[in-house]
Design a protein around this nucleic acid. Structure first.
Length: 647
RNA sequence: GCCCCGAUAGCUCAGCGGUAGAGCAACCGCUUCGUAAGCGGUAGGCCGUCUGUUCGAAUCAGACUCGGGGCACCA
């Protein structure tokens, strides 16, 4: 490309990604640079020496610059942020008595929080969206102004935007206070923004209204949050809406009903009614886990559901976890709590007799049924319930054993996830929360021990500050499903506090009493939640070893019904979960019916198969049939349906 | 728990002041059929619960329960 300017006055060098350098007269704006590169249309902002700026930003000296365009994630985020402003402008035009609070971009769009006495209705959303399109068509210039903070506060007070004024007071002195103006709307904002509202395009849509607390604090006023989605192109918006519709189709609550797995009803809000097929699935998973744990050196135990208040006081739960606990009273008026966690029970088993260091690490596992009194608004299908069963275990060990136990646990966990079809697992390190038990010294020790342990596994992880359990720091294992959604399931928590509080100890090689360390760990987390995730991940189409009904034998007409029975029996004898359909419907109807119920294998048998002792094997999702000898089909399916026992 | 929205047959939904409708499913017949919906018929609802307004409420109002989307909380 030829150089756009040739004058000999003061010039600056702009270095682009890849090392190419352009010379411009000083000063040069981001727009000039974009124009020089022929990218005026696509550019929404510019990165100058690593900092995102408006295109109107003037460059005064030699810099490194990179255009931010609408087709890359960073540019899209800026457009989404622009959309939040445009929405706020539309709302202020339509409902001038509204105060604006906070409006960022999100992963799929944007939102803005508003304070207004009247609730926004769905009809209001339609009006706001229409007005947004109008503002985009007006193509208002978006300009940035830096203000002295006193003046800025006075300005927002003057226009009745108290929350904005309050927000300015919190901006660190080191940062400048900038205002963005478009049409008659002025917002406090760090930027950057696209040069004009026309940049938004048309690929956006307002989605919903929700309540949200001012600064996320429930003690503050509740605002109305309007969510929207925005994409670079209309097709991408369409794809996003299509993905939402697809996600709804695999919603575990819908599939739970359609596949007859479970149901929920108000008489037991937050607890699951497992139906025969769902319970079958549950038990297969439980049995699989039991096998894995036994091989990994765990001992399964089972503790009481109701334990006396005094234990919970001693463990610290009564103080830190009281509001989540269900309580009951005995005849003699003792207060008992339905266990929300299994750990105190396991400590009591550990303490039931004198323990030797030779027994460590002692791994006590339990499919522990727990109850937590979750706030009603938190309940959500199987994913958030009040009664659930954890694949829980507590490892009592010495501090020296923490690293090796952690490594072994991580290996076990990843192998289990692989068996269930989850390959993508993220690890987060969650450190001390505000509400916690134990001294800072103990937390220092626990955090560094857990940190060493995770480093020792060699697995990548990120930090999740302040999210630890009240008794110790934890690793959270987050799996990503087929729709790239994240679910926290597994956990590994290091606890110096509970053994201390419940006075657990063992006799060491030196003959003295020592305090064991406790590792709390779960792989699936709660079986309920994990099954919910599993249903959505597989869209109800489970791998053969998990499918509640593995094989459906369907006869073509009455003359093959008898042989169909034989086939079903042969499958059952081989340990397959097989069912028989000899009804009078046509075969097409049967196939449709069992396909909708997501049975992975349908064996079709008619006169030809009966005569030759064969079956016609048909897999869910395919319309290819394979003719096989009965024996061979059964042997193959049996092998395929085997429960994975070790990777 | 908080904000908004919702609750009508097993499911999906229509009806929105004059006392309940469709499709699918269910059940009963007929059909015996070769790979994702054969045909006909029957039955099925205290319109989430309670209170109020009204001559009259599925329909309007209020409260409650549960559900949904969020917030906060969290496995």
């Amino acid at each position: 490309m030829s150089e756009p300017f040739s004058a000999a006055e003061a010039r600056i060098a702009v270095t682009l990604p890849g090392g190419r350098t352009l010379n411009f007269p000083r000063p040069v704006s981001g727009s000039d640079i974009a124009a020089a590169l022929g990218k005026s249309e696509a550019a929404v902002a510019i990165s100058i020496d690593g900092k995102a700026r408006d295109l109107s930003h003037l460059v005064e000296g030699d810099v490194e610059a990179r255009l931010i365009t609408r087709d890359e994630p960073e540019g899209l985020a800026i457009l989404r942020h622009d959309a939040a402003h445009v929405m706020a402008e539309a709302v202020k035009e339509l409902y001038p008595d509204t105060q604006v609070a906070f409006g960022p971009a999100t992963e799929t769009g944007f939102y803005y929080d508003f304070a207004r006495a009247e609730p926004f209705t769905p009809e209001d959303l339609a009006k706001i969206e229409a007005r947004m399109h109008e503002i985009v068509r007006r193509n208002e210039k978006i300009t940035r102004e830096v203000r002295d903070r006193g003046a800025a506060i006075a300005f927002f007070r003057g226009i009745g935007e108290e929350m904005k004024a309050e927000h300015i007071a919190e901006i660190p002195e080191s940062e400048e206070v900038s205002l963005y103006r478009q049409g008659r709307f002025v917002d406090l904002c760090a930027g950057p923004h696209a040069p004009s509202t026309g940049a938004l395009g048309e690929a956006f849509k307002l989605m919903s209204v929700a309540g949200a607390y001012w600064r996320g604090d429930p003690r503050n006023a509740q605002l109305q949050r309007i969510y929207g989605t925005l994409w670079a192109k209309k097709e991408e918006l369409g794809q996003y809406l299509f993905r939402l519709a697809e996600a709804e189709k695999r919603d575990h609550r819908r599939l739970g009903r359609e596949l007859e797995l479970f149901h929920l009803q108000e008489e037991a809000a937050g607890s699951v009614f497992w139906h025969p097929k769902g319970w079958r699935l549950y038990r297969v998973i439980e049995g699989y886990m039991r096998g894995r744990l036994e091989k990994a050196g765990y001992f399964e135990v089972s503790g009481p559901q109701l334990l006396d208040r005094s234990l919970w006081v001693a463990s610290g739960h009564w103080e830190k976890f009281r509001e989540h606990m269900f309580t009951a009273e005995s005849r003699d008026e003792r207060v008992l709590a339905l266990k929300p966690m299994n750990c105190p029970g396991h400590v009591l088993i550990f303490k039931s007799r004198l323990r030797s260091y030779r027994e460590l690490p002692l791994r006590l596992a339990e499919f522990g049924a727990c109850h937590r009194n979750e706030p009603s608004g938190a309940l959500h299908g199987l994913l958030r319930v009040r009664a659930f069963t954890q694949d829980d275990a507590h490892i009592f060990c010495t501090e020296e054993q923490v690293a090796s136990e952690s490594i072994a646990f991580c290996e076990l966990l990843l192998s289990v996830y692989r068996d269930f079809g989850f390959a993508d697992v993220a690890i987060r390190f969650a450190d001390r929360p505000t509400v916690r038990a134990g001294s800072d010294e103990v937390w220092d020790r626990a955090e560094s021990a857990l940190q060493e342990a995770i480093e020792a596994t060699g697995l990548p992880y990120t930090k999740n500050p302040g999210e630890g359990a009240f008794y110790g720091p934890k690793l959270e294992f987050v799996l990503r499903d087929a729709l790239a959604r994240e679910w926290q399931c597994g956990t590994l928590q290091l606890d110096f506090v509970l053994p201390e509080r419940l006075d657990a100890n063992y006799v060491g090689a030196d003959g003295a009493r020592h305090r064991p360390v406790m590792l709390h760990r779960a792989i699936l987390g709660s079986l309920e939640r994990f099954i919910g995730v599993l249903i959505e991940h597989h869209a109800g189409h489970f791998p053969l070893w998990l499918a509640p009904v593995q094989v459906m034998v369907a006869s073509i007409s009455e003359e093959s019904a008898r042989y169909a029975g034989e086939v079903a029996r042969a499958c059952g004898d081989a340990g397959l979960r097989a069912e028989l359909d000899t009804g009078s419907e046509k075969i097409g109807y049967k196939i449709r019916e069992h396909s909708l119920l997501k049975v992975p294998v349908i064996l079709v048998v008619g006169r030809r198969e009966a005569e030759t002792k064969r079956v016609m094997l048909r897999r869910l999702g395919s319309n290819v049939q394979e003719a096989l000898a009965l024996d061979e089909a059964v042997a193959r399916l049996k092998a395929e349906a085997a429960i994975p026992q070790d990777a």
